[in-house]
Design a protein around this nucleic acid. Structure first.
Lengths: 339, 339
DNA sequence: TGAGTGAATGACAACGTTGTCATTAGAACG
DNA sequence: CGTTCTAATGACAACGTTGTCATTCACTCA
């Protein structure tokens, strides 16, 4: 790999002159510039990032730490979003997964420090309170899709309350009154917030919500979930006064609702409207009919996380510590107005 | 961030002595070691990776280049596999996506060179022939899930032929004779290979395959696919002599087969057996009943790609340029022996 | 003509490490 | 006691880059 020195030797100029040209410094004679440029391309020179960083102390590498990518496949979008923001400034991303192992995570923080990353995006795969045990990390940290229990770190999270509100309102506006809810694990902050949002929509519409129609679609604790949506939904749909629409905790649950409805001869959306959450395209676009759902803005979250780190931290008041990203409605064909 | 020099000053020894301790060099007096260790932890010393790399020339960073992560969400598993292999040697991963833009891709190759990465895993999201236009990259490159048209780069790819064989054999062994096939886009190498595998299984079983039962489940070209599996399958299942089992090009298609069957009142697996491909857990574990499918070994592919680069390139004969990774059968509840 | 100006270029140090070699101080030996 | 050996430690250079300052040279102006 050629160096400034080599190029300088070939071109018969000093190292510094070559450096100037590489960095677009104005004060170089046009003729010299052209000559050196030629050797630059001939020798296929590429600046050594390590040397630059050592000299300048500044780093253009960011870290992305994640506790468990595996569970939600579309979390890749966080990475893509981060990369989109990084791209503009010619920055790059070093990624690492702790897989939930605290010892491993500590090692990875050290690794990031060793690489002198400019900042770290810490992405947890559930929108939940997350305690980063003193990472002993002096650079900026932004949490993505999770938030610190003590609230001392900026975090970018989906606006679940608004998401739940959006789901309920969409159905209420279309005349549905008896609306079933199949929820995720109740421990999740997301579940709580969405529930609040839904109730807000019901209140606004002046509809009293029948609490007996809210059921848990998942058994077990976080990490060891077992779906029981199919059974639960069948039961709910077999009631004499069955709901005309169902709000689902995510698209996976929606999928099982489809099967439960199908098994009872109910067709979607004619006999039953279904709205999902997450917009896992793999599911939402493949279900038949395609699923109307509220999207988790992973891409946007990743993007904003990096942008937040690149921004001068002028407005980092405590109120701005939690940045809520709206969850947009994606309208497809699984809901129908009640006639 | 503290340096060797600082620690040395605090401990009253030379820089080199501290360096020795950090690197576990044997020739240090136990007493000095203890004293220095203390300052090391107090000052929270972490070696500067850039300086190390510059001094030694060796890099412990690998690159992962990908053309479009978005499409197949489980491609994250390639990353996870790569990281698993990296972990053992305390190496790290710099990732970048070209999103299919050749200009951008060229820039990223330069970026990798700037970082002096030790090697690059190039992951394309379809198992297909991929032409890396002279990346002008002198380090090792391993292709994951794709292969070079001219075959001059080592590549790790799923054994699609065997995968197709596995699908067909599984059903044949269970007594099925009229077996429908819903395929992906025919252009894909994967589609061709799997078809060959299936035919091999039919031949072995002495069953003549009714070509009219092989249908295309996807319309359009790569990148702009539109599913038409639902319609196609309904048609196939409405035939007087309908198949008793269906082999699907992937789990997405399988999902639509479920819906098509349901719409005709056929229940799975009692009236129809279905076998998928990919094992996208989001789908395969959520379908009701859960889907028997053949898994794409993404994790293993990522792992082997990195291992291949870490290995001394002794056995890089041309024959070993393409490494086939078997696709394991994942048995769930969507198939039933024909009685 | 000589001083002053500005543009173009170069010499040198420093960033934090580690490899090479030298130095020191005991210990072991004759 | 002097010599040799070994263990422990340190001085120094170099990796590739860029910031600081110095130098060179052609030119302008009085």
């Amino acid at each position: 790999m050629s160096t400034l020195r080599e190029v300088a030797k070939h071109a018969g100029v000093s190292i510094k002159t070559v450096s100037r040209i590489v960095n677009g410094d104005a004060a170089v004679n046009a003729k010299t510039r052209a000559a050196v440029q030629h050797h630059l391309t001939t020798l296929n020179y590429v600046p050594n990032h390590a040397a630059r960083q050592m000299r300048s102390g500044a780093s253009s590498v960011f870290g992305l730490m994640t506790d468990a990518v595996a569970t939600t496949p579309y979390s890749v979008d966080i990475v893509r979003g981060a990369q989109a923001a990084l791209l503009e400034n010619h920055q790059t991303l070093l990624i690492a997964s702790s897989d939930g192992d605290p010892k491993r995570e500590a090692e990875l923080w050290q690794m990031f420090r060793a690489h002198r990353v400019a900042g770290v995006v810490y992405a947890a795969m559930f929108h939940r309170s997350h305690d980063i045990g003193k990472p002993a990390f002096d650079k900026s940290i932004v949490l993505a899709n999770c938030f610190a229990a003590n609230g001392d770190k900026p975090s970018i999270i989906p606006d679940d309350e608004l998401g739940g509100y959006t789901q309920a309102k969409y159905l209420l506006q279309r005349g549905h009154r008896r609306i079933g809810i199949v929820t995720l694990i109740p421990d999740l902050e997301a579940t709580r917030l969405r529930g609040m949002g839904m109730r807000r929509a019901f209140a606004e519409a002046g509809v009293t919500f029948d609490e007996s129609l809210e059921l848990r679609g998942v058994r077990g604790a976080v990490g060891g979930e077992v779906l029981m949506t199919y059974e639960v939904t069948r039961e709910m749909l077999s009631m004499p006064n069955r709901p005309t629409a169902i709000i689902c905790g995510n698209d996976t649950l929606a999928m099982q609702v489809y099967f439960a409805a199908g098994s009872l001869g109910l067709s979607i959306p004619d006999h039953l409207s279904v709205i999902g959450f997450d917009d896992l395209k793999l599911i939402s676009e493949t279900l038949y009919p395609q699923l109307t759902t509220v999207a988790l803005p992973y891409f946007e979250i990743g993007k904003r996380a990096v942008e937040h780190m690149n921004k001068p931290h002028a407005g980092s008041t405590l109120s701005s510590q939690r940045q809520l990203v709206p969850c947009p409605l994606v309208e497809r064909h699984s809901c129908k107005p009640l006639t």
